[in-house]
Design a protein around this nucleic acid. Sequence first.
DNA 1: TGACTGGCATCAAGTCCTTGATATGGGTCA
DNA 2: TGACCCATATCAAGGACTTGATGCCAGTCA
Lengths: 151, 151
Amino acid sequence: MSQPPDVIPEQALQRVGWALRRADLTLQSAKEPALRAVGLSTASYSLLMHVHVYPGLNGAELGRRLGVSTQAVALLVTKLEAGGLVERRAHPRHRNIQELYLTDEGHRTLQAAYRHVGTIEDKITDALGPEEAQHLRDLLDTVMAALADTE
Amino acid sequence: MSQPPDVIPEQALQRVGWALRRADLTLQSAKEPALRAVGLSTASYSLLMHVHVYPGLNGAELGRRLGVSTQAVALLVTKLEAGGLVERRAHPRHRNIQELYLTDEGHRTLQAAYRHVGTIEDKITDALGPEEAQHLRDLLDTVMAALADTE
DNA sequence: TGACTGGCATCAAGTCCTTGATATGGGTCA
DNA sequence: TGACCCATATCAAGGACTTGATGCCAGTCA
């Protein structure tokens, strides 16, 4: 039996997808110690930021935006609620749904975290310059649009 | 006590780092069902691809490249070895170090996976065009270089 | 009105990965 | 040669997340 020809190109690991993966991994690693300093995990930080920007978000929608399951969100929210950073409120009409809000303490913690993590974002935009930073966002949007067609 | 001014800009979630995160999440989600079809997790696929491109890699170095701990690699390798996809060989001089290689079966599985996942990569490069795809890689390299200065 | 459908939340069990600690072997330097 | 240091690999325990199953509630349709 002869071996089939190798369909994997030499530069497989240099393709866009892997560059994207490496860049995101590097970014997450860079953020991690800054967040640890204020007592947050990267997951908690993402959750707080999303609730800050979209107050009243429910757990299921939050899970979709963060790329994790509803259950994972619920576990995290329970911890953050115990720590006094977020608050669950009943949806005015759908009693079964909970809306999430930041407490004052949660707001302060998020701001402290942003002061640290924001400097990392600044490093990126400084290195790119405003035009290229915008260009990068556009390119990433194009990538996401291309992947959305997959469904 | 007066509330401190909000230092978090409105567009916090539109910054480059979050765009990067969302794009990578979307990509991983898109790859996942394709890999499941050939019985691989995204972690396994990444590992196989790296061992294919860099034959003889050891576990610790692999962990650094994948962004996971050495132990996680060891657990995964044990499973892949039991499945007959990878092979541990003793380093010729350092008896304590193991070099990793793909078996023929591992090579076949990786090729099957690449046939599925490669089409997703193609979607991206088709949507961008060759120049913009290269540009995106360059921009991501710039981002990683900027983050490397952090240390 | 009552049955059906769909989305949200929670409980339970299992998987994957992490941190911490330990053993082993090679390289360096006195 | 021997002591020290560093890197790899493994064992153990804990944490975070996943899938699967269940309950609950609002909206829809006959």
